[in-house]
Design a protein around this nucleic acid. Structure first.
Lengths: 145, 145
DNA sequence: TAATAATAGTTGGTGATACGAACTATGACA
DNA sequence: TGTCATAGTTCGTATCACCAACTATTATTA
């Protein structure tokens, strides 16, 4: 007699554990390039986007004030650039500087390698299945909060 | 003509994205209890274990010195307790204080709720499939690094 | 057994991260 | 035009995390 809402501690545990493992791998990859995990995220996000400070803060779930310092440091390192928005005199757009693009590309490759021990544990068919399941879990509207 | 190592940017992307979503949910859950993500992890880890400082640092991938302050603050809040090890006069064991156990239990429940939007997006059969796939991905020896 | 080395944890210094509040400048609107 | 809202920044504070140096205890080994 299964009631409506099935409890799934197994799935929650698996999600949490695998997430920590993935994040740990990315963190150490970031550290290898002297980046914080957040900076790595910024590079990844800006790989195919150009965002205003507030937009980037939204993606990251951070305050605008936090971003100021973050972008400052990344700009000083030649990873990001700032430019005033053409549409809005108050707004500032952030995008990858050449150095940032190069690093972002390299990190994308390295991330695949860093996670290979995980993905390689699955048969090709299972890899595709997992990709599909994660994808449908992330479908718009599903995000917590 | 598929060569030996299939590239799977789709899976890597899905893993990274879902991990960030899960971690963000846990972070905001932690913040709701005035905890950092690391402190939340400590509570979760010590839920069924009693560890020395170095052991806990190992689980978390942090330096021992980082743990000292972390445990200090948590101890001051009544979440953790320290006790000298019976076996080794140098070692100190850390474990949940009553307040920490209560909070850890509550957070376990809330984590399930926080991730419900994700897990609910899947049919029961898919939930089980996903749990299985993540589980085999995390099988011993698969961990990156 | 006495001297040396290794280990456990802490302390102190530094830099990055993140927040909130207060501030400036620009845009929206009434 | 005057008021209000928005975009970013700056400032102050607390946490997080690292490293190097230190104390205390345990292991080695000569």
């Amino acid at each position: 007699m299964d009631t409506s809402e099935p409890e799934d501690p197994g799935l929650v545990d698996a999600l949490v554990q695998s997430s920590f493992v993935v994040i740990a791998a990315l963190s150490s990859l970031a550290a290898a390039h002297d980046l914080s995990l957040t900076q790595l995220r910024v590079l990844a996000i800006l790989r195919d986007r150009r965002l205003r400070m507030a937009g980037l803060a939204g993606y990251l779930g951070l305050e605008r004030s936090t971003l100021s310092g973050l972008v400052d440091r990344a700009e000083k390192r030649g990873l990001l650039e700032r430019a005033p928005s053409a549409d809005d005199g108050r707004a500032i757009e952030v995008f990858l500087a050449p150095g940032g693009r190069e690093l972002a590309d390299r990190i994308t490759v390295e991330a695949g390698a860093a996670l290979a021990p995980l993905t390689a544990a699955l048969a090709p068919g299972d890899r595709a299945r997992l990709t599909g399941l994660l994808g449908s879990m992330l479908e718009p509207g599903a995000r917590p909060r």
